[in-house]
Write a protein that binds this DNA or RNA. Structure first.
Lengths: 153, 153
DNA sequence: CTATACACGTGATGC
DNA sequence: TGCATCACGTGTATA
């Protein structure tokens, strides 16, 4: 009973990141739990409930791992592969996005209220992270965009 | 041995959201695991390893729950309190932030490349969502920036 | 050898 | 009632 899912052992680190399906049909619990213990033979009923709890819990764990994998997919800069570290990186990333959003908001506010400064050119203060792809990590080198025309098309 | 942490049962839904500490020192495993089985009495050694594994696993679970709680704290609009749902909401929120970031990037690009239109005034088309609080759930209403074609990152 | 991290089954709880 | 979710202890594998 302990070595029932031995080939499952490292699907968190290997299989799960390649394919998340193909492991649905075990055909192992459903073998002796197949079908209908319809409210008769009470020991069979409780064993049915037990194994149903087992498979339910198994699905819950699987769903949670899939979600965690999906979270890791949308977050750049994953430091470690731990579950806890994945969540931590996601938190840091969200706060980073919040900070950037506040900065850009201030910037755009300046643009549309002040429009231009006295020189007739826009001056962005410390635009220190690219907005679209921030995972380039451009190590804080005081790069100053005087004109972003280089990016467009 | 099964009812050892009975008062822990619903700390996920109640206690954890109020205080996450104050539960560190059990003084219950360390009671019979106190001190020194320094490489003698092999049964004691394995029981020491076992209970050490228990408390280690307990700390791992606790850390993971704290992280999950912190994740829930930075994500607005939590639909359900499930672990899986919390992660799902975080994923959706990050993607939503990515979308908005792209939009704002386009907007700022339009502002500083085109600077002014022929009327000498800025024209924002459909600035319908506040940039800081996007949790208003603007359901994808085909807003399209004609000024900026393909950010091409 | 010892941490660390994980999946698993199990009993409990709430809806 | 059954179903979903959770914390727990345990065995096991990797660094």
């Amino acid at each position: 009973m302990e070595n029932i899912g031995e080939e499952y052992k490292h699907y968190w680190e290997t299989n799960m990141f390649l394919q998340t399906e193909e492991l649905d049909s075990w055909g192992l619990d459903e073998a002796f739990n197949s079908g209908y213990y319809d409210s008769s033979s009470p020991d069979g009923a409780q064993s049915s409930a037990a194994s149903k709890n087992i498979v339910s819990e198994r699905n819950r764990r699987k769903k949670l791992n899939e979600r965690l994998f999906a979270l890791r997919a949308v977050v750049p800069k994953i430091s470690k592969m731990d579950k806890a570290s994945i969540i931590k990186d996601a938190i840091d990333y969200i706060q980073e996005l919040h900070d950037q959003e506040r900065r850009i908001q201030a910037e755009i506010l300046q643009l549309e209220s002040g429009k231009l400064n006295e020189n007739g050119v826009f001056r962005f203060q410390r635009r220190d992270a690219c907005l679209v792809k921030i995972q380039e990590e451009e190590n804080r080198s005081e790069l100053r965009f005087r004109g972003v025309k280089s990016i467009s098309h």
